[in-house]
Design a protein around this nucleic acid. Structure first.
Lengths: 229, 229
DNA sequence: TGACTTAATGTGATTTATACACTAAATAAG
DNA sequence: CTTATTTAGTGTATAAATCACATTAAGTCA
């Protein structure tokens, strides 16, 4: 670690696991690094925390630079601090994940990144730094969260079908779920409002559309609940 | 924030919520601060992370200085990074909790602290810095953990009774549990070994002693389980 | 030897989880 | 316009887990 002490003594950064849903697949937004180390490799977007910036504002800033989005679901997951996790110096990094609605996002290059691209979460096999570990922890946390609170609606359009929700859960948990049991359990929570509309233009029986009752949802988020499925 | 830039530019620290069980009460080890700010106030033990120290080693070091213990249960909970959380400068702190066996610990003053003392967790109403918030998050995490894995044996002596375990759970969850249901569920997990011994010297029917099967326990810790009670 | 204290144990009622297959409503293609 | 195709939507019976609840057992103490 030749640079460890000369380059910078120590710093903290955040790394951001930005997740979205596309074609029933859980996607993560990676950037092509435009700086050493690992220049030109795909990595998690991240940045140093500024001295006058609240920790939680750093991932928000990154998210907004990359996607333009302001109010997104954001959760801190874990802090990574092995001495040699960064080849250029001592950097402790805080891992966050956020859930964004892919249809509203046109990610674009920025000062942080020369390119930005969505990748299939479950097909990624390695990442620079300890980013693969960070990604792993975030996915695990999301999977746990989704069982404990009706999270993830951030990933859906405003009006959605029950099948959309099930696909979301299947994408996040990476496994198939029973349709009837899923619907039974989900509806019984009472956080969905039947908007009395139907899908149109589909070559099959159109599904009912729902949106959800934000108040009940917030209640659940606060209290937590059990959605083992 | 007069000193913010002159005292130190930025630093990271850890704060350690060290928990033990005494008289069926969940206790936390606080130190009487021997430094500004908040000199002479009771606070969580914490310290700056050294440049050449892995993050996770910092709470271990503190724990070992205060209690002499080496291998304790330690879990990272959350990182706190509001700009003004520390009156003297920008300090981002990582909160950990650990579980220690009170009978094996004689905490003593050290370079960090002029005095050390166990406090009733649920009677603490405020702490300096954002330590009250850190404590709160740690307790919440412990309460969740205890429902998901057979955690907390670190808080018990080597041989213990089922009532000890129940008291532990009651102390952590801060509520009464039904004896028969508790025992039924706990025994069914199969992580306890009946050591064929009994309590002695108690003025009532003596209870069976158990220890636990580390292998099954590790299995559970890895996989997680459901102990909703 | 009687009073006291905590240990230990089982059952029935209720709730929750699971497995599973057919009919309904739209479009597309001939 | 009839048929094929596709996904939506629904119920029931079985198994498993949870819950509420009261009595007897084995020791010490006075």
């Amino acid at each position: 670690m030749p640079f460890r002490n000369s380059f910078f003594k120590s710093a903290f950064s955040v790394d951001n696991v930005i997740l979205g849903l596309e074609n029933s697949k859980l996607k993560v937004l990676l950037i092509k690094r435009s700086e050493v180390p690992f220049i030109d490799e795909w990595a998690l977007p991240g940045d140093l925390v500024r001295t006058d910036e609240n920790l939680r504002d750093a991932p928000k800033r990154i998210l907004s630079e990359l996607t333009g989005l302001q109010d997104v679901y954001l959760e801190q997951v874990h802090t990574f601090g092995k001495v040699d996790r960064h080849p250029l110096g001592r950097v402790i990094t805080v891992g966050y994940y956020s859930l964004v609605n892919l249809s509203r996002v046109k990610p674009k290059a920025s000062s942080i990144a020369s390119k930005v691209k969505w990748f299939d979460v479950f097909e990624i096999e390695s990442l620079p730094f300890d980013h693969f570990e960070i990604l792993g922890k975030c996915i695990k946390r999301l999977q746990n969260s989704v069982r404990e609170m009706p999270i993830g609606f951030e990933l859906l359009p405003e009006k959605f079908t029950l099948s959309d929700v099930q696909e979301l859960y299947e994408a996040v948990l990476d496994k198939q779920l029973d349709k009837r049991n899923f619907r039974k359990k989900f509806l019984s929570m009472g956080i969905l409002i039947d908007v009395k509309e139907y899908q149109t233009g589909v070559a099959h029986r159109p599904a009912k559309l729902f949106k959800f009752e934000t108040s009940k949802y917030e209640e659940f988020k606060a209290k937590g609940f059990n959605f083992e499925i």
